[in-house]
Nucleic acid binder design. Sequence first.
DNA 1: ATAAGAATTTGATTTATATCAAAAATTCCT
DNA 2: AGGAATTTTTGATATAAATCAAATTCTTAT
Lengths: 189, 189
Amino acid sequence: MIEDIFEKITEEYCEISPEAIFDWSQRIKIIEHKKKHLLIKEGSYSTKFYYIIKGAVKAYYLLDEKEITDWFAFQNDFIPSTTNHLIGQKSNHYIELLEDSILIELTNTDLEEICKNHHDFEHLYRLTLSKVIYQLRERIASLQFRTVKQRYDSLIELHPTIESRVPLGDIASYLGITQESLSRIRASK
Amino acid sequence: MIEDIFEKITEEYCEISPEAIFDWSQRIKIIEHKKKHLLIKEGSYSTKFYYIIKGAVKAYYLLDEKEITDWFAFQNDFIPSTTNHLIGQKSNHYIELLEDSILIELTNTDLEEICKNHHDFEHLYRLTLSKVIYQLRERIASLQFRTVKQRYDSLIELHPTIESRVPLGDIASYLGITQESLSRIRASK
DNA sequence: ATAAGAATTTGATTTATATCAAAAATTCCT
DNA sequence: AGGAATTTTTGATATAAATCAAATTCTTAT
């Protein structure tokens, strides 16, 4: 199982030495939780890094008592830490499972240790961050000037199963609109 | 001068070995250009990485013949490459100087070489990407549900000099609104 | 210093989305 | 399976921002 995961990662990013994989495998924990479980609660430091073996999660924060969803992750995705370590800022995010899920958990301390011990692992980690940057830039382009219809369509294209797996309100929030508006857009297709 | 720059970087991110700094200093080029100069033209691969010693730049792309500005950078900022190397995608961005500027230029090939040769440099580079991610997430939060007024105010707070240095139309574009709307918001203060 | 060009502001109108409220549909639980 | 709870849709209205057009102010080059 662990081998399969690293094969996927190697395929997408780069090769990793057996030593680094061993070090990593000694530190990770495979965890399983039910739908609605909170991986990170607001106000607590986000000290862990997750990889989704199976399942789905959303990240959200509260603004004026409303949940604002700003990240979805599915099978084979990472859940990047929401904390900025450079400024030691607390996470203000919740991360909630949208389905029963199996995840790999790694503490930030361990992640940093592995990076320190293995240059190739740090390289891999750097590449995963580049990918996150690419995704975030796409998302900004989407929010900045595309119509809601366009944003919705490209979300569906990116995650064809999202409609059946994620509540409409969360999708609307992610797109930066109200649930009513999304419902109307969806009806007008 | 080069020493000063690395002192700034060290202060913000982490220490770097003299060997890595030396390697880096052998590969960089210090360039100087006038306002309106284009560092990257659309359609050409963005193969360089810049650091601003002095000046200001904007990154933009064209959508339906309109310029969409999606990044500003000032003194001591990086200009991250707009290319996603994992998928080898072409840049569709222009990067234009908003003022006469002095920059450090490093080709992506050289950057990768330095990272390969010096683990500590790769570490530094990884930290700079984390910071970019933090900034992009802030920007998404801003576009997703904050009012235009709030977005404008926090931009001014982050870059107090921006109003006098950057054309209104570019700021409006960055905020995801028309220039006319920004003008009205500004008038209502 | 001044004319030409560029950037910004103002005005009138239209359009997209938010808001508030309620009905309908779906999911969840025992 | 059947009622409660949740989620989604629909409706009426209000609001923010876009659009198009023109006037004004600011910059730049000669």
